[in-house]
Simulated scan of single mutants.
Amino acid sequence: MTRQQIRWNGDAALAAMRAGAVRGVRLGAEHLLQVANGRTPIEEGTLERSGVVSVDEGDVSAAVSYDTPYAVRQHETLDYQHDQGREAKWLEKSLHEENGTITEIIAAQVRRAVEQ
């Protein structure tokens, strides 16, 4: 009978998966920001330029936000007139439409981290 040994590096595997997830969440949020910026109401571009991605590595989470005094009102007010292709709810709509792509971005980064 041949003996075989298996070496289990569970802690290293978990650390790699977590690092991949953090990278994936960051890339997914950056993708969302890019897509949302294409719909952001624009007059001078200030609102679009204020968009940022924030990542909390501890929680493995990310947020996309816009930092102008009028960002919330522009997002939520449905009866404002916008240029063609620009609209209210630009961030919300982009998130719903890109959810599958964002999930795939995260999954790909986790797979990549584990395969290394």
Rank of each mutant, 00 (worst) to 15 (best):
L78E: 08
Q84K: 11
R18A: 10
R26P: 01
L32K: 07
D67W: 13
V25S: 05
A19L: 14
G58I: 10
V64P: 00
T103D: 12
S65V: 00
L14A: 07
L33P: 01
Q84T: 02
E92Q: 10
D11M: 11
I6H: 12
A21T: 00
N99Y: 15
A15P: 01
G58A: 12
L47N: 10
G10K: 14
G85F: 14
N9Y: 06
A71P: 03
E98Q: 12
Y66N: 06
T46D: 09
G20S: 11
A21I: 01
Q74W: 10
D59H: 08
L47E: 07
A88V: 01
L27W: 13
V53K: 11
S61Y: 13
Q4F: 07
D11T: 12
R86F: 02
G38L: 02
N9C: 04
L91S: 03
R49T: 00
V60Y: 15
E92F: 06
V60H: 13
D83T: 02
I6N: 07
D56Y: 10
Q4T: 05
N37Q: 15
Q74F: 09
Q5K: 06
A19R: 15
Q4N: 07
S94A: 14
L78R: 09
L91V: 00
A19Q: 14
E87N: 03
K89H: 10
R86N: 06
V64G: 07
V53T: 13
E30M: 07
I42Y: 11
G20P: 03
G100M: 09
L33G: 01
A62N: 05
D56L: 12
A12G: 02
